[in-house]
Design a protein around this nucleic acid. Structure first.
Length: 804
DNA sequence: AGCACGCCGACT
DNA sequence: GTCGGCGTGCTC
């Protein structure tokens, strides 16, 4: 086994296969499948993953691996195989699959440098390039490029005076801190202690300390706790009594927080019925998918916790996925309180270094439970006992870039290999999952009632057209306003929800109706107040708001759309005594600010919490007795077959925030289309009827769960090319599929142009097309320039959530 | 992805 | 005649 197969870090069709390398004798032990290596590839060095070992290669002249980058594999055999599965199911490159499974910190960073040849001196170089080397032996390539010195350097390189080198670097290093420990045994320390000079007070204290605690201790902590100076330590190190070493420490994002350990709660009989099948599946090492369908506040989390408890007692591990966890600090708290240090937390709010450290804890078997967002599904556990996906209907479980995977599918795949249960929990299951539960593919577990027998909040729908007719032009209906005032008087809290998406503030001329668009994309620019700027959310274009209309020169240019800022202003006007906390992207940008705002609200620092999507989840405060939805239908009219489902889920979710404890809750939903079934049925909180109605609609329009979808998006700088290539692809697909398949295209994408690239697409609806995948692969093969040339890009999504 | 090799236009 | 444009193909 002196040859390694390596997947190299070049995401391109042509390099998406293993390359063989010789294993240098001194690395025989470390180079095993799953370790990252640094390999020569063409003229440069790049990172790669060892996927297998062998004794022979078809290739004649093999190069050698330059160096291993890990001492233990970062991908275990299961994850290597899962990488194959991911590649196959999402049609991505193998390297992309591997990288998606690891923390970003492990992705290579490349540095191109110039180094002075050993035989050359600085003075041998032409004068104009000498300063680049700034006294040392190295120069940065980028700097040379910026100063236009590449040509000169090329000539110098030809004379053998400088060399170009490529370096592979890890993005983040393990954090190491200096530790001190005794290097001699107790008796020696004691005898040294007696020989200390009378004025060596610090050294005395130190030896006394280490006689008690011989284990390594972090230097700075030691200095401050013994209140001595570094000089004393140095003195003993010099005498050979103490030694210094750098040990790895973890960056702990929850370090400052104390978590009180809590015991399991008594389960209600409904909870007992629901958890029983899960427990027996755990006991029997049986893979089974459960859909835990429980209304908000029905105690799903306790079921998760006790199932995990069971898994841990068997010596196994657990993965819990939650949608974007930084949004639910309460959830983290519950897990940390129950399982303490056994929990690792992974979410987007952590720095790359912090994420890496959490991942290391898993890899080193120091934790048994991981709570995290989508990518935590790849946690490198080897003895998984359960996978839980909370709020399983959330669309954030689908990754919208390559590899385009759905965490639910990965979970089930891993559940199969580990022979362990997968629990999907939701108060508003996705149609796909619910349909599978109905068919018996998943096992349905129901929690139809709230735990403390609190009734679900009373929901009232307000027809905003009627309000308008009665002359109320404000964004608050008279009913909502009344209730708001009432809560203020009683000192109870209100949550106001505004779904900004699809209605974000755009800039329009009131005279001619001209809307300001992005020059590069077919999308309106969004107005950002704090910088008095307009921004494109797709290409990043920014511009100042014009004083006059670019079309008709009118000065009546205004921003439209009800943003949270505007609501806040109006609240301040109408209810000046009310204290408002606003939560949206602008106010929660900084790390930890989200939690700070929520804590402030919980402690009663405000009467009204006003926010977007992000407040729909996980809020569980006793004093909230009113929830207001300012405009329920903003997302209903998006070009998305899931818009009804999303509307229903969101409204149900938000309503669930009210009256979760002793005080009863009320919900007011304002809408312009109260007759729409998703709004009406969210009003009556009737998931079953919504499910039936929506299933009919899906069946009629041939959408999931009746049909599978695949979306091909072609983008090109030239409109005609985009159209004609999409057309060719569409015809090719049609020729390869059966009559049952529905092929829609070519049509312009809902956003027809992004960053000056025209976008056309082809949507395929099908039930069973064994040929589809090979046809899609053939297309990718044929247009293999795909990412190589910037002119043509083809993206494929085998189960799109966003049809854009 | 980089980079080299290779074949056609406008210039010292 | 050459310098340099970026199309094509290769990297174990």
């Amino acid at each position: 086994m002196n040859i390694a197969s390596v997947i190299v870090d070049v995401p391109a069709k042509q390099t998406d296969k293993p390359f063989d390398y010789l294993i240098p004798e001194q690395y025989k032990e470390v180079i095993v499948p799953g370790v990252r290596v640094n390999v020569p590839f063409g003229p440069r060095n790049i990172q790669g993953f060892v996927t297998g070992l062998k004794t022979e290669s078809n290739f004649k002249k093999l190069k050698s691996i330059a160096e291993p980058l890990d001492l233990t594999p970062v991908l275990n055999p299961e994850l290597l195989e899962l990488g194959d599965w991911l590649t196959e199911h999402s049609l991505c490159y193998k390297i992309s699959a591997f990288q998606a499974m690891l923390p970003a910190a492990l992705k290579a960073k490349y540095e191109k440098k110039l180094i002075l040849a050993p035989k050359a001196a600085l003075n041998d170089l032409p004068e104009e390039v000498r300063h680049l080397f700034a006294g040392g032996k190295e120069a940065k390539w980028e700097e040379a490029v910026e100063q236009g010195l590449i040509d000169t350097l090329k000539k110098v390189a030809a004379r053998g005076l400088v060399e170009v080198v490529y370096q592979v670097k890890d993005r983040v290093r393990k954090k190491r801190l200096r530790h001190i420990s005794p290097t001699v045994d107790q008796s020696v320390m004691k005898s040294q202690f007696d020989q200390l000079a009378a004025n060596a007070k610090g050294q005395r204290v130190l030896i006394e300390y280490f006689l008690q605690h011989p284990e390594p201790v972090e230097l700075r902590a030691l200095l401050s706790s013994l209140s001595i100076s570094q000089a004393s330590v140095k003195g003993l190190v010099k005498k050979g009594i103490l030694g210094e070493q750098d040990l790895e420490v973890y960056r702990d994002p929850y370090e400052a927080r104390e978590f009180q350990r809590k015991e399991a709660l008594q389960l209600t009989s409904a909870q007992k019925d629901a958890i029983e099948p899960v427990l027996s599946s755990i006991n029997e090492d049986r893979h089974e998918v459960f859909l835990l369908y429980g209304v908000t506040g029905s105690g799903k989390t306790e079921i998760y916790l006790q199932s995990i408890q069971k898994v841990l007692s068997k010596g196994q591990e657990a993965i819990v996925l939650v949608p974007e966890i930084s949004l639910t600090p309460q959830m983290v708290k519950r897990f940390k309180e129950r399982f303490g240090d056994l929990v690792a937390v992974m979410h987007s709010g952590l720095s790359a270094g912090e994420k890496y450290d959490e991942w290391r804890k898993i890899q080193r078997r120091e934790v048994k439970v991981v709570v995290g967002a989508r990518s935590a599904i790849f946690a490198p556990f080897e003895n998984l006992g359960i996978i839980i996906i909370d709020e399983e209907h959330e669309t954030s479980y689908k990754q919208e870039e390559n590899p385009r995977y759905h965490a639910r599918d990965v979970a089930i795949q891993r559940g199969l290999t580990h022979r362990c249960p997968v629990v999907l929990g939701s108060a508003t299951p996705s149609l796909e999952s619910f349909a599978r539960a109905q068919k018996g593919v998943y096992t349905l577990l129901s929690l139809p009632e709230r735990m403390n027998q609190q009734p679900l909040p009373k929901v009232e729908l307000v027809d905003m057209r009627e309000e308008l007719r009665q002359g109320n032009r404000s964004m608050f209906s008279s009913l909502l306003f009344e209730k708001l005032q009432d809560r203020l008087e009683k000192g109870e809290q209100t949550v106001l929800f505004l779904n900004k998406r699809g209605h974000s503030s755009f800039v329009m001329c009131r005279d001619c109706g001209y809307v300001i668009n992005c020059p590069n994309c077919d999308i309106t620019l969004t107005y950002h107040r704090h910088k008095e700027q307009m921004k494109c959310h797709y290409c990043g274009f920014e511009d100042i708001v014009p004083a006059v209309c670019p079309e008709c020169a009118s000065e009546h240019i205004r921003y439209f759309g009800t943003g949270t800022q505007k609501v806040e202003e109006e609240l301040n006007k109408l209810l000046p005594e009310a204290r408002v906390i606003r939560m949206d992207v602008d106010t929660t940008g900084r790390k930890g600010s989200h939690e700070k705002l929520l804590n402030a609200f919980q402690e009663g620092a405000a009467d009204i919490l006003l926010g977007t999507q992000m407040i729909a989840k996980g809020l569980d405060f006793p004093n909230i007795t009113l929830v207001g939805v300012l405009s329920a239908d903003t997302m209903l009219h998006l070009p998305d077959f899931r818009s009804s489902e999303k509307t229903f889920q969101l409204l149900t979710q938000v309503s669930g925030r009210a009256g979760r404890h002793e005080l009863p809750g009320e919900v007011v939903i304002q809408t312009y289309t109260p007759e729409h079934y998703s709004i009406e049925l969210a009003g009556s909180q009737d998931f079953d009827r919504f499910y039936q109605q929506e299933m009919v609609a899906r069946k009629v329009h041939k959408y999931p769960p009746f049909y599978y979808l695949s979306l091909i998006t072609v983008s090109h700088e030239e409109l005609m090319k985009a159209v004609s290539i999409t057309e060719k692809i569409t015809r090719f697909i049609a020729s390869r599929l059966s009559q049952e398949a529905v092929i829609l295209g070519p049509v312009a994408s809902p956003i027809p142009r992004i960053n000056n690239r025209y976008r056309y697409q082809c949507l395929i609806k099908y039930k069973k097309e064994p040929e589809l995948k090979s046809a899609l692969k053939a297309i990718l093969d044929h247009y293999q320039q795909e990412s190589a040339s910037s002119t043509l890009q083809i993206s494929m999504d085998l189960n799109p959530y966003i049809l854009m």
